[in-house]
């Protein structure tokens, strides 16, 4: 009896191995390491997008790991290397400390893609990095402002978490333009802090209004903080939007923010695209077909296309296609 059970078990094991092997042949094994979806609407959309693209129907055997810190991400990375997946996709919590792990993956013949966040290392350690260029987002927004041809640009500037990529990328082009052009003045500046807080933004705007500073542009580095400023404007009876006195600019393209654009209450929203999955999917399929990944710069980066929406031209379709969250 015991022998019979052992035989059955052994058979089952063999069958299991066989089925695994079969799966290996047909499907591309990918390990995807991301940040926590609760981090922001951006991250949520990013995680959902990856889940939508890397499916079994699309020919993938994908494992997903979300971790908020670099050490947990590195653990997951090493596990994937040991498992022997075909590709690893990483959005790193920290830019440093990855060299060893990346080298180990390369030695094991595993291709690594970076998405959304860069890692400080030799570009040869990864196949491609699909990222957003935050400075381009700032430049696009400043170019839009310029195209309005206003007599004067008096700007209330609400910054994000100081030192973050997004803050630097969105602040720098504005600061440079304000320094170069006499018509451009930053009348008040403040930060929403490490959490990009709406309420901090509201307080900064309130203080500027109380001090009698007059501004005709609000350049807020994310949608939430723009909302905070608008609450202060509403309370003080300052009109805003397409028909109003003050132009409202936000970033991130949350669905609710784009709806406010559509309603004419805000003027501009800059996109920071969380959709990199399809690009990477395309690259993997090209590699599988024996091709080469194209369109990369000298740092092996693929810069995502990014849009800026204007309240006067945005459509319902744009809101549904590009809006994040609900």
């Amino acid at each position: 009896m015991k022998k019979l059970i052992a035989l059955v078990l052994a058979l089952a094991l063999c069958l299991g191995m066989a089925s695994f092997a079969a799966a290996d042949d047909a499907k591309v094994k990918v390990g995807i390491i991301n940040l926590d979806p609760s981090e922001s609407g951006y991250r949520e959309a990013n995680v959902n997008d990856l889940h939508k693209v890397f499916t079994e129907e699309n020919g993938y055997d994908a494992s997903f790991v979300t971790a908020p810190t670099a050490d947990k991400q590195l653990d997951a990375f090493n596990t994937f290397v040991n498992e022997g997946v075909d590709y690893i996709l990483v959005s790193a919590a920290e830019t440093t400390g990855w060299d060893e792990a990346l080298a180990a993956a390369q030695e094991a013949g595993i291709g690594v893609f970076l998405f959304d966040r860069m890692i400080d290392c030799d570009p040869s350690l990864y196949l491609a990095a699909v990222v957003s260029d935050m400075t381009k987002e700032g430049e696009t927004a400043v170019a839009w402002l310029e195209s309005l041809n206003l007599e004067e640009y008096n700007i209330l500037h609400i910054q994000g978490q100081m030192g973050s990529d997004a803050q630097i990328g969105r602040s720098t082009p504005l600061a440079e333009k304000a320094a170069a052009d006499d018509k451009w003045t930053i009348v008040a500046e403040g930060t929403g802090g490490d959490s990009w807080s709406e309420d901090e933004a509201r307080k900064i705007a309130e203080a500027a209004i109380n001090e009698g500073k007059s501004f005709n542009i609000v350049y807020a580095e994310n949608d939430g903080m723009a909302r905070g400023v608008v609450a202060a404007l509403d309370a003080a009876g300052i009109t805003h939007g397409v028909e109003g006195d003050v132009k409202i600019m936000g970033f991130d393209c949350n669905k609710w923010a784009l709806r406010l654009l559509l309603a004419g209450e805000w003027n501009y929203d800059g996109q920071c695209s969380p959709f990199q999955a399809e690009v990477i999917d395309g690259m993997i399929k090209t590699l599988k077909a024996g091709g080469q990944i194209e369109g990369l710069n000298e740092k092996n980066q693929y810069i995502n296309e990014e849009k800026g929406f204007d309240a006067t031209t945005i459509t319902e379709d744009d809101v549904n296609t590009y809006g994040l969250g609900e």
Partner: peptide
Amino acid sequence: IATCRMSQVSHKTLLVD
């Protein structure tokens, strides 16, 4: 109060710090 100020809840920023 904090919710009604912004007519929204952002779990990251509400009453932060």
